[in-house]
Amino acid sequence: MQTRPGESPDTSIPAPVLRWEHFPHEADMGVRGYGATLGEAFAAAATAMTAIVTDPAVIEAREHFTFDCADPDPELLLYDFLNVLVLEMAVEGRLFGRFRVRVEAGNLSAEAWGERVERLRHQPAVEIKGATFTQLAVWQTEQGPWVAQCVLDI
């Protein structure tokens, strides 16, 4: 993951309207993201993951990260994408509130904006152990939008 501290998101590009939700799993929590493109659905799923820890709206875009993943299987790509973020959250204590993801022919390039966790301000509820293969699924609906989901181990 490349880090460029202090770089703010390009405000000339409007942030996509991300639709996401949590779905129940007996022991843990599922995340589901919707988007007009595969990348948007991944970004929405990542926002849903952040929302398990804290309110994404409270996270300031103080740092900017970029990273890439590649896999022809979009579900493995989602697994890898979320787990890169989980690793970064765990190692550096970072939280991400906004994402931009592009996926083309199995190649994913991601940007994430966030900051280091401040326990009083962010009130982190839990740490995430990892994205799992449970209910891991990526598909395009008949109406056109993409959906990306999986259960996270908490």
Partner: peptide, 10 residues
């Protein structure tokens, strides 16, 4: 342990 689980599962 979490990372080992993540990597070997895949």
């Amino acid at each position: 342990g979490h990372q080992i689980g993540t990597e070997f599962l895949r």
